[in-house]
Write a protein that binds this DNA or RNA. Sequence first.
DNA 1: AATCATTACAACCGCTGTTGT
DNA 2: CACAACAGCGGTTGTAATGAT
Length: 312
Amino acid sequence: MEGRREEGIRKGPWKAEEDEVLFNHVKKCGPRDWSSIRSKGLLQRTGKSCRLRWVNKLRPNLKNGCKFSLEEERVVIDLQAQFGNKWARIATYLPGRTDNDVKNFWSSRQKRLARILQASAPSKSHKNKREGPVYDEVITLEAPKFSCSSEGESSSQAQSCSSPPCFGNSEIIKMVPLPDLVKPKLLALEANPVQQELAPTEKNPWIEPQPLIPFLQNPQPQTDLDFSLETQELLARFDPYFDMLTPLVASELGNGGEQLLMEPPFLEPVGSCGSGERDKIGNPITPDFVFDDLPVDMFDQIELLPNSSEQH
DNA sequence: AATCATTACAACCGCTGTTGT
DNA sequence: CACAACAGCGGTTGTAATGAT
């Protein structure tokens, strides 16, 4: 696209001065006209680069340097299962997080899970995979079918955004396929900060409004729970009976637990569920992505997974 | 203390969709 | 309608920080 030689284009880490220039530009002109930043000679950066810098680092109300809380983790996990790798979309449910954050988090997590699974499957290295019924079961588990037109059910849960937190609640955190938990809440709710950002006011077109609900601001201490949580969650995806464990997990989570803003970023048209989540066969979820990045070996191990009772 | 491995983060690239002319 | 420019998204890569040995 930018085929011509880009002389004087700066790349790499941003300097504080550049940030300041960019910030001032946005302050004046709003978060757009990125390419004009260079054409005006303000910065030797491409518009693309400027936009990215703004979105990922300079935008107000970002949770820079904050690790994902357990609640946020769960949201990402759940929404990823629901939407696939729609990071931007997922990020809209996590105030203060960017698509890049979510993406990075997810890929780190994928690697971690892969390692965990690999480490736990040392012996059966490279035999033929996917021969047993296990894989098929996984698919079934991983692809919960849910109706996209969930107006009906949503009413009973629509309150969740304005009032009580959805998470930190053992019932909510239960490890069942997310759509049952989240989907209804995604509809018929008011705009979130991201949405509002997209509709800036005249006075301060660039200022992002404060989140409607105070979101968890402090990084949650990452403890050993991470591992167990991750492992358990993973197992839960493979073993329907693993749900039995969830109260335990939930209770652990509940303590950290602040609020999870399960609030829809947009008033998603009901139909958009089907259209947005591109899926080969029309189902909203394609299970395979969950495994794409995991070592094939893992399925061997899954076969061996003990029942939930052994997890204690 | 040194080295290696892993994680987290920042930034870039290529592609696609949208919008303006 | 066609084209170009722009904006946005997702994938990928590079690197600094951190942890483990």
